[in-house]
Design a protein around this nucleic acid. Structure first.
Lengths: 225, 225
DNA sequence: ACCTCCTTACGTAGTTTCACGGAGGCGACC
DNA sequence: GGTCGCCTCCGTGAAACTACGTAAGGAGGT
């Protein structure tokens, strides 16, 4: 961790807000974890760091990414409020995690969490469910990265963000064009061009750069199909 | 690309959970599961099928894929002998699984497996470790799909297959050029051209189409870096 | 006034698309 | 047993196209 981060008082449960049904893992981290406040672009952990904690986003957004020697970057996932991240099979983080916006997270020690899970079958199962849900999401994203055009990528991204923000027709992106591009395997220019192209097709409306209205969901759905 | 950190990232494949230490999940499926023999291209499960089982490859190879309405296909993973697959967060499979070559698998009912895990902490932990290992592998693959050139993709693929087959300098591919292309997010033509280009650079030698000798690992490592 | 982030324009490069030819396996039929 | 035809899989060339690289300028915040 770095200078942006500082540990705060223990946490009081907020909105569980994950998927359908109880989220035992999320609740456990929320109850037993320590709370932290992070500034935009603060590093939560880096590649190669020891995987000591498991984290949950309370507010804001987090990106999981890897940077290649020549600077190319791939973002593997964005995590929004309620999401749990930091799972690792080994002792080291293979990606880094950074705050996309100012945000708040809670964290719990990995050994402590696994010890709890060893005695609590429901928690163990919740751990597995979270991991497999992430895996399914990762597989979906691979299809996007490997086989979709720029337009399809952007349309899918917008629909996904809308669904995760509560499915209204107006979304508020916490991340920059850089982040979007590196998430979709594109350049910022292509993302920008594609967004204006979607706007000229009347599929969306760009109120501000990070505030987008979905004017024609049908059109977006067709592109993302 | 991005203005933030430039970290050195040498390529290291995700070490399968099998191999280092006990593989409680693999053992459990092997002992309690039913055995099945499959012909090449046989479907193990399809998209939308109920996720009733968890599987382990005994011999041969399996591909996990999704096909889009227009025929584009993305292969999310290849599973070789010893690998476990079929994890799903929900009740349905989101991808389909097919035999790449004639192969043998064992399978165990998901409810039975989860019931065992509820009483066996070590098994529950093994389930989580398998899922997170798959997740790490998926993240690595996203970098490949989103940010690597054709040459880098093919070189990385060859090194990965070599490592998984036992790291000799001679690999035997179970899959067609189609499968490789759909795994790497390329076309078969590009895969083919890239392989001949690697051969003319003396990095590999194509004995037969599916039998490849790694002549210059250093060169491949540099491409995959 | 400067910085960061975003948009737009234009030429280019890498990958795909299309088209064709070859190699090898398999069944049918002589 | 050999030959023919058919099929799948693999390789290669030329043209087309998508997304990229480069560059320049605008918008908004501090």
């Amino acid at each position: 961790m770095n200078a942006f981060a500082r540990i705060e008082t223990p946490y009081t449960p907020v909105t569980p807000a994950i998927g359908r049904g109880a989220d035992r893992l999320g609740e456990t981290i929320g109850l037993a974890g320590a709370r932290m406040r992070l500034e935009r672009n603060a590093e939560i952990y880096g590649e190669g760091d020891a995987a000591e904690f498991v984290y949950r986003v309370v507010s804001g957004a987090v990106r999981i990414s890897r940077v290649l020697i020549d600077g190319r970057r791939q973002i593997g996932a964005f995590h929004l409020a309620g999401d749990v991240f930091g799972f690792e099979p080994g002792e080291e983080h293979r990606f880094s995690a950074e705050a996309v916006s100012d945000c708040e997270i809670v964290l719990i020690g990995r050994p402590a969490l696994l010890a709890l899970a060893a005695r609590d079958g429901e928690l163990a199962r919740s751990l597995w469910e979270h991991a497999t849900a992430d895996l399914a999401r990762a597989h979906d994203h691979m299809v996007l990265l490997g086989r979709r055009s720029a337009t399809e990528k952007v349309a899918t991204f917008l629909l996904d963000m809308a669904a995760r923000e509560g499915s209204r027709d107006r979304i508020e992106l916490p991340m920059s064009r850089y982040d979007i591009a590196d998430y979709l395997g594109l350049t910022i220019e292509t993302v920008s061009r594609t967004l204006t192209q979607l706007e000229s097709r009347r599929a969306i409306e760009l109120t501000e750069a990070r505030r987008i209205a979905l004017r024609d969901r049908g059109a977006l759905d067709r592109l993302a199909a």
